[in-house]
């Protein structure tokens, strides 16, 4: 009985503290607008990285290749939609379609690479599907995606932390997709199987790694009222 009264008093005391510490806040913009802002920051950082490393010499030829453009478009769309989903996951009662938005461009991206593998096999036979180690992909995607991922984590912490693992996984996917988009502007690797395994594999691995850190990164401060 005494414990119950203590717990109830603690709730009243918490209400007193919270109401005394109140500061005005501006309502967050819609996840689509926030994601758009994030993509601009991410692309700005990616452009700086591409400029620092140096663009691939055959870029002008690649920009005329519909397959290259389709894959790059799908990567960019996946990055944007994953950012929308990550931010929507921190808005309580947000519409479901916003939270599952990256599924469509993500499927299109994987399909485009799958069709590319098929075409390489038809054109060159088994020689078109050779797989060799390319660990640089992982390193560059992580490097270009690092700052956007950090910015995304800070943006996510402004919302309600409801599904920390899913939120950060989607955020990690967004950052890695932008990283992959930039990678193909300076890294000469276009064999569909290599792109599918090393680049797409790195993107998914980084998204899974981010998701695994979600609870640790987002929840640690989420229940501390002094941080807001």
């Amino acid at each position: 009985m005494t414990h119950t009264r203590d717990a109830s008093h603690a709730t009243s005391a918490l209400i007193d503290t919270l109401s005394q510490d109140l500061r005005p806040v501006a309502p967050l913009a819609h996840p689509i607008w926030r994601a758009l802002g994030w993509v601009l920051v991410a692309l700005g950082f990616a452009s700086a990285m591409v400029w620092a490393i140096g663009v691939r010499p055959d870029l002008s030829d690649q920009l005329r290749d519909p397959r290259f453009m389709l894959e790059q478009g799908a990567a960019l769309a996946t990055g944007f939609c994953a950012a929308v989903a990550a931010l929507a996951l921190t808005i309580p009662a947000s519409p479901l379609w916003l939270r599952i938005l990256p599924l469509l461009p993500g499927a299109a991206w994987i399909s485009a690479l799958g069709v590319g593998c098929l075409r390489d096999w038809v054109n060159a036979g088994p020689a078109g599907l050779v797989l060799s180690p390319d660990m640089a992909c992982f390193f560059y995607i992580a490097l270009v995606g690092s700052l956007p991922a950090l910015v995304m984590a800070l943006m996510l912490r402004r919302g309600a932390i409801l599904y920390p693992n899913w939120s950060l996984a989607a955020g990690g996917l967004a950052a890695a997709a932008i990283g992959n988009f930039a990678l193909r502007l300076f890294h000469m690797q276009d064999a569909a199987l290599m792109v599918l395994v090393w680049q797409m594999g790195s993107v998914l691995l980084l998204a899974a790694f981010s998701g695994a850190l979600g609870h640790w990164v987002l929840r640690r401060s989420a229940l501390d009222p002094t941080l807001s």
Binding site: A7, S8, T11, P27, I91, G159, I161, L223, P225
Partner: peptide, 18 residues
């Protein structure tokens, strides 16, 4: 009460998300 306090803290932390 423990859960109620968690809910109130979350409301405070995420009040901009409404």
């Amino acid at each position: 009460e423990d859960i109620i306090q968690d809910i109130l803290l979350s409301l405070h932390r995420a009040r901009a998300s409404w």
